[in-house]
């Protein structure tokens, strides 16, 4: 029983996620050392005092072999110590935590748009393959998949904020402060801009896999049973087509994280994406490293979750 569980898909998938995470951590550790210059000054900035330099030398274990340095770093990371921001002079983790609310909310709202727009319209286009509806939906999807999010964002600001004055153009005050949930309106335009290309991709994917599934033999079997066409579409075609969409969730998430960096900058949102851009311009390397680490952990974690869900939905799934 225990053996079965330990060799089960879930355990093996979690194991592979941990291995990937550890390997990724080596790259992220190496990042600081790859930046031109002495790692001490990379971590401390040029204005470091001799005492600080000494502390940092011990902290990074620079007198020891590289693998010891890595383990030291890993030990600190596992305790939640990602170093100190050069710019803010506070722990990196709390700098990131400050941006987390904005970024997580932005990503979640965007995902809702992506699924709400992409899946139903993709289904519609597939069931009306070749009609004007399909051609319009597919053409628009292709168009929006080619649009830079920041460009869409700028025009959304122009129309809805500058001209119509319906929505705020930038910033985001926390929903836990003054204004409460109404502050979510600050995220409406950014999430729409961010959703545009990703909804387009999900739409195309839904359409393509619906069409693919509807050609399968088992759909013919379902029709032969005499169940109603809408039941065939929902129970047999849509359910199987959705598997491809779920499996592609990881891709969408990666694209979304990438584009959020730019979107947060356009809308001046106090999120992690804008933080990383500003940190690059400020040469605040510990923060950059921290953001990459946290994002990769989150990304791999969500991918793990998606794979487990996918396995639940599709009993055929096996680990490669």
């Amino acid at each position: 029983m225990l053996y079965n569980f330990l060799t089960s898909y879930t355990m093996r998938r979690i194991g592979s996620a941990i291995i990937t995470m550890m390997s990724a951590s080596v790259i992220i550790f190496a990042f600081i050392h790859l930046i031109p210059g002495d790692p001490i000054y990379v971590m401390l900035g040029d204005g470091a005092t001799p005492d600080q330099v000494k502390d940092m030398q011990i902290r990074l274990g620079l007198d020891k072999p590289v693998y010891i340095q890595y383990l030291l770093w890993l030990y600190q990371v596992l305790q939640g110590d990602l170093g100190t921001s050069l710019f803010f002079q506070i722990p990196v983790l709390s700098v990131i935590a400050d941006g987390a609310e904005t970024s997580l909310l932005l990503a979640s709202i965007t995902m809702v748009w992506v699924l709400l727009i992409g899946i139903p319209i993709g289904m519609l286009a597939a069931t009306r393959q070749g009609t004007l509806t399909d051609q319009a939906a597919s053409g628009l999807a292709m168009f929006f998949a080619s649009v830079p999010t920041f460009w869409v964002g700028l025009y959304l600001i122009l129309f809805f904020a500058a001209w119509l004055g319906w929505l705020p153009s930038s910033g985001y005050p926390s929903i836990f402060g003054d204004g409460g949930l109404a502050n979510l309106r600050y995220l409406l335009l950014p999430s729409l801009a961010l959703a545009a290309p990703n909804a387009a991709l999900i739409l195309r994917l839904t359409r393509a896999s619906m069409l693919d599934v509807s050609r399968q033999d088992y759909v013919r079997t379902a029709r032969a049973k005499g169940i109603r066409p809408w039941q065939v579409t929902v129970k047999h075609i849509f359910r199987n087509a959705l598997l491809a969409v779920v499996a592609a969730f990881g891709f969408t998430l990666a694209a979304l994280i990438s584009e959020a960096v730019v979107t947060e900058t356009v809308f001046a949102l106090p999120g992690v994406g804008r933080l990383v851009v500003q940190s690059i311009l400020r040469r605040d390397y510990p923060v950059i490293q921290g953001v990459i680490l946290v994002t990769v952990i989150l990304y791999l974690g969500i991918n793990l979750l998606v794979d487990l869900i996918n396995r639940y939905l599709d009993p055929r799934v096996e680990l490669e």
Partner: peptide, 28 residues
Amino acid sequence: LEPHQRVDAGLSGISMIFQEPMTSLNPV
């Protein structure tokens, strides 16, 4: 009449099995 229309009309007396048992069942 398609199969579901035959069901409605009470004329669903024909069934069929296919060449490819591997792909003719819904995998999920």
